[in-house]
Nucleic acid binder design. Structure first.
Lengths: 196, 196
DNA sequence: CAAACAAGTTAGTCTATGCTAACATTTAAC
DNA sequence: GTTAAATGTTAGCATAGACTAACTTGTTTG
């Protein structure tokens, strides 16, 4: 076994994560439509992903990401958002253009370069925010979206970390005027672009 | 015929151009070594490139870029240099890391994004320089290198455009203290990073 | 100038990714 | 609750890219 993922398996993981987030489940047809490929290609990719232990998949049953698959999807989505942020804000590309280009670049961007780019565009995870910092939510991954949306915390939400955020886990964050309680592991799944 | 090039054919064109620049000729073995593939893979790629009209290639004979192939190689090399510049200077990646990442990203970077990135890192062609602007040469392509090296104009050279650069074609540039005469079409092949 | 070596090519194989056409299973509707 | 539509899978094929092993051509050198 070489590397765990390729461009197309990463694309697939990413789409599954996004569908799971939005719809609660990922159908082969939806994955195929989002990826712009035919259904049999998706079936094949799912088998590969299942072999690598990145999805739980049985024929005619709903697909789910494993813990490992979810981690990879999250990382890819974060890279995507960070690249898109750079492309729109620094290179002034229109959103759709930035989106499609980020889709291609995200698979080549290694973790170190991603780290540096995040610093460059001033993005960090909610877990890394300091009291009184504020920013805008760029991405929420790993199945938190449906729960947090109920609190009005969605992509694009303004976030300000309460000065008095207590330590400990779960930890409270003052977000959007509402106090929300999250585990550190959850807060890490939320990317925030800091107000400059 | 889909698109003229793929990642691997572009890589091949790029290497051929660089070898032609440095050595004056491109051997299959050298191309293979630089690309990190075996010789038969290069032979196959050269056949593809020949079919697309991007190289002139006959078995057991030296490979040469056609006009079209040369144009594509030049564009890829420019993208590479511009990305590398961004990665080293803005993201502070070490040169080898920046180089290998740029190698991967260069194939995904479309022309519009490239244009914007060039502006962002303050790179333009020698042909676009204004009198009194100065900078550092980032890349020289299209077979100019061997001639210009004789004048001391190589990658890394400091360049200052003479105030009195006359119009017309060929046009004179005061470069490195020496006056060099270039056609506009040649000056376009030289990328300069402007002093900030 | 012939043998040995280097360089290049051919043939055949493999993997990844995609496709279409045909088959199987679920679901939804009557 | 059987059948039709939607959904999903299998089988078979194609292309791009790379590989190894074996062959051919060119070059060098005693």
């Amino acid at each position: 076994m070489n590397s765990l993922t390729t461009t197309s398996t990463e694309d697939c993981l990413e789409i599954i994560a996004k569908l799971a987030e939005k719809e609660g489940h990922a159908h082969v047809s939806d994955i195929a439509r989002q990826l712009g490929v035919k259904k049999p290609s998706v079936t094949a990719t799912l088998k590969t992903l299942a072999e690598k232990g990145l999805v739980q998949y049985e024929s005619y049953h709903p697909v789910e990401l494993t813990r490992k698959g979810s981690q990879i999807a999250t990382q890819v989505i974060k890279k995507h958002q960070t690249l898109k942020c750079f492309l729109t804000q620094f290179l002034k590309l229109p959103p759709e253009h930035a989106d499609s280009l980020a889709c291609k670049l995200e698979h080549e961007l290694d973790d170190v370069a991603f780290e540096r780019l995040s610093e460059f565009v001033n993005i960090k995870s909610l877990a890394a925010m300091l009291p009184d910092e504020e920013g805008v939510v760029m991405s929420i991954t790993a199945g938190l979206g449906r729960r947090l949306a109920a609190y009005g915390l969605v992509k694009g939400s303004s976030v300000r970390l309460s000065k008095i955020a207590p330590l400990g886990d779960p930890r409270s964050f003052l977000v959007n005027g509402t106090e929300i309680s999250l585990r550190a592991s959850e807060a890490k799944q939320i990317q925030v672009e800091l107000r400059s």
